[in-house]
């Protein structure tokens, strides 16, 4: 690998942007393609697929065996609301490989005792969120039921273009949320990105089942081709 290629891979990794290194294992010929350049690449379908699956592997193109090494950032999950659902959601997400942070300004809720081994921030979203460096590789879930907490957090999630944004609440609650967020400049298209009611419809009843529904929906958004994602 050329030093310049290695330096480019490291720079993209440090910036939490995906990059794929393509190596012809017979000749040693090699190139790196940043996610932003996939669309114009002759191998774009293969690159898209491997990045979506987060999986490195061999492909064969015109009789050549090429190895695609996928460097994708670790996905984060930010949970707004240290509620009962979050207590089930945080460990589940961690077992799926996410870096999890729970944010809730209510110190009685956001306590380490309720969330062992989870990064818990007992601050309002305007203080808690900027240091978390929320980015595209972040799933963002608002479950406090309290507009004072959820709304500013959701505005931050839109600004950072999170790959998944979900919010707890019935259709009626969600419609009211729409009125409030649009009054703050969120477009219809942005608002339509919020998954609400949150989670795949699996008939979830308990907090743990709702956590499963949420992680299933996040997984589908991460792994399925865009047109098929829930």
């Amino acid at each position: 690998m050329k030093l310049a290629t290695l330096a480019e891979v490291n720079a993209e990794r440090a910036a939490r942007r995906p990059i794929i290194v393509i190596t012809d294992t017979a000749s040693g010929e090699q190139r790196a393609v940043k996610a932003a350049d996939f669309a114009g690449d002759p191998l774009h379908a293969e690159l898209d697929k491997h990045l979506r699956m987060g999986k490195s592997g061999m492909i064969e193109v015109d009789g050549k065996k090429l190895f695609l090494n996928v460097y994708a950032p670790t996905a984060k999950l930010v949970i707004i609301g240290a509620v009962h659902i979050s207590q089930a959601l945080a460990p589940l997400a961690r077992s799926l490989g996410y870096d999890v942070t729970v944010v809730d300004p209510r110190t009685a809720f956001a306590s380490p005792e309720r969330f062992p081994d989870v990064n818990v921030v007992a601050e309002w979203p305007d203080v808690a969120l900027p240091p978390l460096k929320v980015d595209h590789y972040t799933a963002f879930v608002a479950v406090t039921h309290d507009p004072k907490v959820d709304d500013p957090a959701l505005l931050h999630a839109f600004e950072r273009d999170c790959f998944y944004i979900g919010a707890l609440g019935s259709r009626k609650t969600h419609a009211k949320r729409g009125d409030r967020l649009k009054a703050q400049g969120i477009s219809d298209a942005q608002f339509a990105r919020i998954h609400a009611p949150i989670g795949l419809n699996i008939g979830a009843v308990s907090p743990s089942e709702i956590a499963v529904a949420i992680m299933a929906e996040i997984t589908a958004t991460l792994r399925l081709p865009k047109e098929r994602a829930a």
Binding site: L3, L6, A7, V9, N10, R13, A14, G54, K55, S56, V70, Y71, A72, P73, T74, A75, G97
Partner: peptide, 18 residues
């Protein structure tokens, strides 16, 4: 794979530069 490894590629770059 998800990028959870210790930063060995950075080490490789640093070694080479050294």
């Amino acid at each position: 794979m998800l990028d959870r490894d210790e930063d060995i590629l950075k080490a490789a770059e640093d070694w080479q530069k050294a």
